[in-house]
């Protein structure tokens, strides 16, 4: 039997939106066996005590995580990552600040990976100013449109005017896309989907998050499962878990914002962890 495909997220966002903070938080937080693919090690800052081994383009961590820098091409980096003896449980690709997240996400379909959604970070304190800059406006808009889940960062230092402006711009560009105000630390848990006590109500301007696990009273049919997921309120920003279907098949459910992936899996049912923002 072939290995199950590894759920793969894309994290995108313009300069200063908090991608690196997010990656640093993720690698030194509770994550295990997560592979992070970054454009460069430039600002990646990992606690020295967590580093097991450093190579030219990879850093192995004691918690089982690995951080890879894209040397030649993204495809090569991903293939090389999947050639390693240990297959990661989650892959997170950091898109460059100017990349089109959709073209990066296209790589999450390659052999061995399965797409798990694109999260676009938005610096609430800078976005509206940047959006007035004609040079980069289309870059920003492309990013917003490509998002399955939008995450506003730095909401605590943004003014009310800035917050209102960014919400207006973003909701016009991507009216259907769930959006949360969050910190990089919390976001790390969102994409890693580890239900964790660290998902505490955040102070100030941030959303509050809560998580619960849903168990079906009897194995649903595939259609019933899809109906259940479709009916979830938009405040559910993340859903993940293994569900046994009525025909006996087990499927891995991966939902990030409005991105949904169902894949067959050879593992015991866990119920679905639902993370909601308020």
């Amino acid at each position: 039997m072939t290995n199950p495909r590894v759920p793969t997220f894309v994290i995108a966002g313009y300069l200063g939106s908090g991608k690196t903070t997010f990656i640093n938080a993720l690698l030194s937080g509770g994550a295990t066996n997560v592979a992070v693919v970054v454009n460069d090690f430039g600002d990646v800052n990992i606690d020295a005590s967590l580093i097991r081994q450093t190579h030219a383009d990879t850093i192995e961590l004691t918690n089982g995580c690995i951080c890879c820098a894209i040397g030649g091409s993204l495809a090569d980096t991903l293939f090389t990552l999947l050639d390693r003896p240990t297959i990661p449980s989650t892959v997170i690709i950091e898109a460059s600040g100017v990349a089109d997240p959709a073209s990066v996400a296209a790589y999450t379909h390659i052999s061995g990976l399965s797409p798990a959604g694109t999260v676009v970070l938005i610096d609430a304190s800078e976005f509206s100013d940047n959006h007035r800059n004609e040079l980069i406006r289309s870059t920003l808009e492309r990013q917003v449109r490509a998002a399955h889940l939008l995450a506003f960062t730095k909401t605590d230092i943004a003014t009310d005017v800035q917050r209102n402006e960014v919400e207006l711009i973003v909701s016009a560009l991507a009216p259907q896309t769930p959006a949360v105000a969050t910190t990089a630390e919390i976001l790390a848990f969102l994409v890693d989907a580890q239900p964790s006590p660290r998902i505490d109500p955040a102070p100030g301007a941030h959303n509050r998050f809560s998580s619960r696990t849903h168990h079906f009273s009897r194995p649903p049919s595939r259609n019933e499962l899809l109906e259940f997921l479709t009916a979830l309120p938009r405040s559910i920003v993340r859903a993940k878990g293994i569900v046994e279907l009525s025909d006996g098949e087990c499927v891995l459910v991966q939902q990030t914002g409005h991105h949904r992936a169902l894949s067959a899996i050879d593992a015991a049912p866990t119920g679905i962890v639902l993370i909601s923002s308020e």
């Binding site: 091409s73 993204l74 495809a75 293939f79 959709a102 073209s103 996400a105 296209a106 790589y107 379909h109 390659i110 052999s111 797409p115």
Partner: peptide, 28 residues
């Protein structure tokens, strides 16, 4: 097949086209 860049014919069958490197990388 959900990958962007995979081409299909009128019957919905893949026509063999893989557009852009990400899709070409499917042919690993």
């Amino acid at each position: 097949h959900p990958a962007p860049g995979v081409g299909f014919d009128d019957n919905g069958e893949p026509n063999g086209e893989l557009r852009e490197p990400a899709a070409m990388a499917l042919s690993k």
